[in-house]
Design a protein around this nucleic acid. Structure first.
Lengths: 338, 338
DNA sequence: CAATTAATTGACACCGGTGCCATTCAAGGT
DNA sequence: ACCTTGAATGGCACCGGTGTCAATTAATTG
């Protein structure tokens, strides 16, 4: 083991006077190995500063030590939180995190994903919403034998490869909180159609209203698209009503802040004249004035769990929780109605 | 090439009736190959859907097809922009993007970086600020023979491994813009000490003031730490002065918005009573009211350039630009003073 | 104590490519 | 026509690990 380069398994084997296979067993924590040999080899490994070459292992094992986060243009804060969570999940392991966005609007979107998976052969992939609800991609993972976990808001099939948040419960709780404060005319700004998460949020809202014996006035339910502008538009509609709502629940923070600014611009005081609740707990929500009461998605926890499920064996992964709780973050944008 | 698994170079070689080495030459675009053979092999590759195994190549070439972004807790938007840039830079290549944050405050920070580099052996790393100014990490890369590019705001030595933005020019331009509008008493909210980028920004500010024959009133220069709160504090100081500034230049958007909110809360109108300019062009800056005039860092371009420099040969990389222009984004927070 | 059986360890091919050098073959020089 | 030279390919070891199965050694049993 003279030379310049990093020591290899052969150097270790020679120095410890054992076969390379035995060294391999040590670094793989194989149980069929005498404690004496293990100790001897470990000492040599430490002494030489040996680090197993992941590329060689990847070749032999046919799987790379990489977890890939596959996404389609989610917002920055979300993406960063997911990355943080995944990194927490793989911390202490040998895995690395690879990030790969795709544009679902291109013709050969599926081909691109396939090409990526074939090239980098990640050990597992975390599918971020909204891509996580694309069944074609899930099929692709299955077909290629790539482990995957979907981040989503509901468990839409019986498979184990999913982590979710209980948006519905959280929104029910948030709405109940408004009702408890005394609000009865509550506006709802919805999310974009065709996705499960806005549906769940709306369902939670309805459940809370129904449970409290309140009727659902269709005039108080406005469409939205998760954008600031759509929050503005929806809020303009709501405050133009004869009987304005005394509170608004917006299905995400951006719309909530759009609504907040719109209300204020038309002379209303927040929260005195109208209470507002958002969803997501973006950094924005604590920077606005008054700070926004909102629901916090357990994004980091979900991502961490997803990553852990990927690197654990199937039987262990199946034991792990798949639904993590969202929680209400009380700030300054809610008071009882006048 | 019956079987289940993906076709390998051997399958291609057999089907094309050439040696695997020849196939290797084709996929490496080697020039010493007859066009006829190349065409034949390429047809077979396409026919079989052969994708070279990057892990095997990584082993043989001793370098992984991965570009790693190494950072220490930068903000979310910045991080995402960098990722986007790097991904643009490696688009069309076989490279993947790996993201790895480190905590510079831990004892064995350097060891962690080393362990990461030894394990994953990325082909190249992009060092994000503020980690990019850590010479120990740069030395580590050099020692390990890992290619690297530093994202930073000035070129502090004669090496080629750097991409920057010309903060100084941009701030000079932005300040000149304020002066041109008629402002003469301009407040400056600085960035944290000990980093090069705030120094450059301040220098640009001073250059513009000097060039316009304006003196630099020390009372108008307030410290800041790039946080919302520090912007609030600095603005409180500035508007408490007997002769208030008619404009404020904040070294980043967060502080600018902190200043904006502080001014408004003490009854001033923006921009009528005071003009404000920020730096960074965060999404926030177009969401506040009035929208913030700011300087846009060429983050995406810098990251793209950095990635391209990594995957190109040295002589090509040396030809690429290393300083990209920041630019002033005119919005609604600046008008001439009353 | 010999015969089994279980626990350790080693030999060797193989994962799928690339580097180095030998070989083949057509073209150019004399 | 013979020798030289260069272009186009092939052969084979090697990158640094792992899987399979055989070999060796230790422990157990009748």
């Amino acid at each position: 083991m003279k030379g310049e380069g990093k020591p290899t398994i052969n150097d270790v084997a020679a120095a410890a006077n054992v076969s390379k296979k035995t060294v391999s067993r040590v670094i793989n924590k194989s149980p069929l190995l005498s404690d004496k040999t293990r100790a001897k080899v470990e000492a040599v490994i430490k002494d030489l500063g040996f680090v197993p070459n992941l590329q060689a292992r990847a070749l032999a094992l046919r799987r790379n030590f990489i977890i890939a986060a596959i996404h389609d243009n989610p917002n920055a804060q979300f993406l960063v939180n997911v990355q943080q969570g995944i990194l927490e999940g793989i911390e202490g392991s040998e895995f690395g995190l690879m990030v790969q966005p795709f544009d679902r609007n291109t013709e050969d979107f599926e081909q691109e994903v396939r090409a990526f998976l074939e090239r980098q052969r990640p050990y597992g992939v975390v599918l971020l919403p909204p891509i996580s609800s694309d069944e074609a991609i899930v099929d692709l993972c299955r077909e290629m034998g790539t482990r995957y976990v979907r981040m989503s808001s509901i468990k839409n099939d019986d498979e184990a490869h999913i982590v979710s948040s209980n948006d519905r419960d959280a929104v029910r709780e948030a709405t109940a909180y408004l009702i408890e404060k005394g609000h009865t005319r509550i506006g709802l700004i919805e999310g974009p159609e065709g996705f499960t998460s806005p549906q769940e949020r709306r369902a939670g809202f309805e459940e809370a209203m129904t449970a409290a014996g309140l009727s659902l006035d269709p005039a108080l339910v406005r469409p939205g698209s998760y954008t600031f502008e759509s929050g503005v538009t929806a809020a303009q509609d709501l405050i133009a009503l004869d009987r304005r709502p005394t509170a608004i629940f917006a299905c995400n923070d951006e719309m909530a802040i759009g609504a907040m600014i719109t209300c204020r611009r038309s002379g209303m005081l927040i929260p005195e004249d109208i209470s507002i609740v958002g969803f997501d707990d973006t950094p924005l929500s604590s920077h606005v004035w008054p700070s926004l009461t909102t629901v916090r998605w357990p994004i980091v926890e979900m991502a961490r769990t997803a990553a852990q499920k990927l690197i654990e064996p199937d039987d262990v992964a199946a034991q792990m929780p798949w639904m993590l709780p969202s929680s209400l973050v009380e700030r300054g944008s809610v008071v009882p109605p006048k």
